[in-house]
């Protein structure tokens, strides 16, 4: 089981990073989403894996519980990463709609324009 989770984390990380290194906004967003999965599962797994172990206390029997702390951290991380994705999507959309260009890198022409404005 551990091997499955670890290899999944590895594959998701690799795919996420590869997409983050692309030069258009949309693949980068996809890459961030994949990396988010990887990081969340990673954090969750730091609590060690447990199958059929409740996170809910039970007063009738004494069973080994799962580690609740990473779960709580990951829960907020999932929600926050939605917020982050939404902001990035909006930035990407705004940039594309304003400039009709979805490159994430500033081109040499843009840099020149920028310097011109400063001077």
């Amino acid at each position: 089981m551990e091997a499955l989770v670890a290899s999944a984390v590895g594959v998701l990380t690799a795919a996420g990073i590869f997409l983050i290194l692309r030069r258009r906004t949309f693949p980068v967003i996809l890459g961030l989403s994949l990396l988010t999965y990887a990081v969340n599962v990673f954090l969750f797994a730091t609590g060690r894996l447990a199958v059929n172990a409740p996170a809910v206390l039970n007063k009738y029997e004494d069973v080994p519980y799962t580690d609740p702390l990473p779960q709580a951290l990951v829960l907020t991380a999932i929600v926050i990463s939605f917020g982050m994705t939404a902001v990035i999507v909006m930035i990407a959309l705004g940039a594309y709609l304003s400039a009709k260009d979805d490159h994430i890198d500033m081109s040499a022409r843009d840099s020149v324009d920028d310097a011109g404005e400063d001077a």
Binding site: E2, G10, T13, A14, A38, A45, L49
Partner: peptide, 16 residues
């Protein structure tokens, strides 16, 4: 990416 993936996967495997 592959190196990073192996690193992340290996780390969590060892940890678990």
């Amino acid at each position: 990416s592959v190196v990073a993936g192996i690193g992340a996967g290996g780390l969590i495997y060892a940890l678990m």
